[in-house]
Amino acid sequence: MFGIGLPELAVIALVAMIVLGPDRLPQVAKQAGQMIRQVRRMANNARDDLRDELGPEYADLELRDLDPRVIVRKHVMEALAEEDDEASRPGGRPLAPGELPPYDTEAT
């Protein structure tokens, strides 16, 4: 949750109690909870509208999948998996100690 641990939450609660006072704190907490529920509901509606507009082939679409960091990570992991597959092929065996790598005279 945003990298906030228990000690940080305790400090935030203490400051909120001092600033708002014990009388208004429950009311403010209730309003914050309602606002979070409303934002979550709006995000879910936006996701559902996007799924409806894109059609049935995108029924399993998640908004996290559209994050550029997730897309790059996915492609990098696929490329690494392909390299592992190539290395595990019979011709892709590791070199023995002292063995020279193959040399292609037509490569350069």
Rank of each mutant, 00 (worst) to 15 (best):
F2D: 15
L6E: 14
E8Q: 13
L9T: 05
A10C: 07
A10N: 11
V11W: 08
V11H: 10
A13R: 05
A13K: 06
A13L: 08
L14A: 14
L14F: 13
V15F: 13
V15E: 14
A16P: 01
A16K: 10
I18F: 11
V19I: 12
P22I: 05
P22N: 02
D23V: 15
D23F: 15
R24Y: 10
L25H: 03
P26S: 06
P26T: 01
K30C: 05
A32R: 06
A32G: 05
G33Q: 10
Q34C: 08
Q34E: 15
Q34P: 00
M35A: 10
R37T: 12
Q38D: 07
Q38K: 10
Q38F: 04
V39C: 03
V39P: 01
V39Y: 04
R40K: 08
M42S: 03
M42I: 03
A43I: 05
N45Y: 06
N45G: 08
N45T: 09
R47M: 15
R47K: 14
D48V: 06
L50G: 07
E53V: 14
G55T: 05
A59D: 10
A59P: 01
D60M: 11
L61K: 00
E62T: 13
E62N: 12
L63H: 06
R64I: 13
L66Y: 07
D67W: 07
P68V: 12
R73Y: 00
K74I: 01
H75F: 12
H75C: 05
V76Q: 14
V76N: 12
L80D: 00
L80K: 03
L80S: 04
E83V: 11
E83T: 09
D84I: 02
D84E: 07
D85C: 00
D85T: 03
D85W: 02
D85E: 06
E86C: 09
A87Y: 07
A87I: 10
R89N: 13
R89I: 07
R89Q: 15
G91K: 08
G92M: 09
R93G: 14
P94K: 10
L95C: 11
L95S: 07
L95M: 11
L95Y: 10
A96M: 14
G98H: 00
G98M: 01
E99Q: 08
L100Y: 01
L100W: 01
P102W: 00
Y103K: 04
D104A: 05
T105Y: 12
T105C: 13
E106C: 02
E106T: 06
A107C: 00
T108E: 06
